[in-house]
Design a protein around this nucleic acid. Structure first.
Lengths: 83, 83
DNA sequence: TTGGTATATCGGGAAAAGTCGATATATTTG
DNA sequence: CAAATATATCGACTTTTCCCGATATACCAA
């Protein structure tokens, strides 16, 4: 999912019919692509959010998630310096 | 354990009474510090070895493990480029 | 070769993570 | 407000991981 969210235009072209990608990709799109149930995907995304890797934006009845690139850089640096 | 192995002299001073650190630290030393059973520590180390993060050297009845720094750099870069 | 020490492997029980269906909450629309 | 839609949360079951004791293997010393 994290890799998918690097290129929303390529991985979630269907969303274009409803919205743009300013705030990322909505749960339903990710779920369809993942092939897991709605509850599972929703839980995954909230875990990733709590871990800081993605950010959520609620717009109406949709929740959009997008990557927080800073978290990935920080992880890479943490591995470099601490591990 | 991986962090401990960055500074064997500091984290495993007892080993000096028996051997140096050329090949790393032996399982018994790591086990004592970890506070887990011998079998658990042995299994951990062999997993880390198969994953490429540490290298094993058998000397007599002892097995010494030391870090493979290249693997950590590779992981850091993989996270930077792929994740 | 026998016994002692260090490590590895095996089998199983406990804990954690993954996944689901059912249900709850939030939002929009009529 | 009621129905429809999108997402979140809950409880239960399954799978995986963690960790142990017991045992096997390897090496050394007498």
């Amino acid at each position: 999912m994290l890799e998918w969210l690097k290129e929303p235009e390529i991985n979630f072209p269907e969303q274009l019919q409803h919205a743009g990608f300013e705030h990322g990709v909505c749960v339903g799109q990710i779920q369809a692509k993942a092939g897991l149930t709605q509850s599972t995907v929703s839980e995954y995304l909230s875990i990733l959010q709590r871990a800081g890797f993605i950010e959520a934006t609620r717009v109406g009845q949709w929740t959009y998630y997008k990557r927080n690139e800073g978290a990935f850089e920080a992880l890479s640096k943490l591995i470099q310096s601490n591990l």
